[in-house]
Amino acid sequence: MDAFLHQLFSGIATGGIYASVALALVMIYQATHHVNFAQGEMAMLSTYVALTLIQAGVPYWIAFVLTVGASMIVGIGIQWLVLRPLEKAPVLASVGVFIGMLLMFNSVAGWIFSYTLKPFPSPFGEGPPMLNGLFSRHELGSTGVTLLVLTAVWAFFRFTRLGLAMRAAAFNPISSRLVGVPVAKMLALGWGLAAGIGAVAGMMVAPVVFLDPNMMAGVLLYAFAGALLGGITNPLGAVVGGLLVGVIENLGGAYVVGTELKLSMALVIIVVVLVVKPSGLFGKTLASRV
């Protein structure tokens, strides 16, 4: 039983990471109907930035804040320079650019930081497991951080004028312009926010899986599955979906398919969602975007 609970909680901890990346994906999808295939690689690069800062002697939490801030600025820059001109381009062009960025970021990271696995510090220490051994210190801490970030993002969208304007710009760009919302800036801001959330996810997952240029490939895949499971049009759904995928992955890996097939579970979840309930658990029924 304890082993089962441990797997469950450990699933929630990784699920929080998937939930963050899924949220980042859904935010961008809602606003632009683009899926950012480079979201994971952006987070990976952010994590290298954090590692560089920490190794240069910057205290962990200051490095954390600096990294999130820098990632947001870079995210805004990417949207403004690369994606804004492609706003009305067909799916193929946007996917092409995202895949191009994925390849570029991955190679740049390999070039600068090499392809060897690097340990990444956890701010929560190595100490003994907590809560009757169900949670490791890092699992508990990273779950706390991701939940905090997700709550903050929710509150930002729910209670602030800017958050409301960003939602409006995503839902109805024409009406938003008519009430004076600068829609293009809101999209860029959304990218910034997504990049910041991704950076947190990267820094939280790196102590567990070690840092290397391909660190986020699996995470991105599970985040896709989470976003689809929750409903790709629903941010809250994406978070729940991401958490569920984390739990399914961990329990499935431990008791059903074994670790060798873990990654294939993302594919299975995606296909099952598309066959059984294409709109996801919380998404609205959507017409085919042919």
Binding site: H33, V91, V95, L267, I270, L274, P278, R289, V290
Partner: peptide, 23 residues
């Protein structure tokens, strides 16, 4: 299943497939 929805769903599904192939 993936083509019924079109657009980006196929890209996602096939990407997941590509990642899963070696496993």
């Amino acid at each position: 299943p993936a083509l019924r929805l079109g657009g980006v769903y196929l890209a996602l599904t096939t990407f997941a497939l590509a990642v899963a192939v070696p496993q």
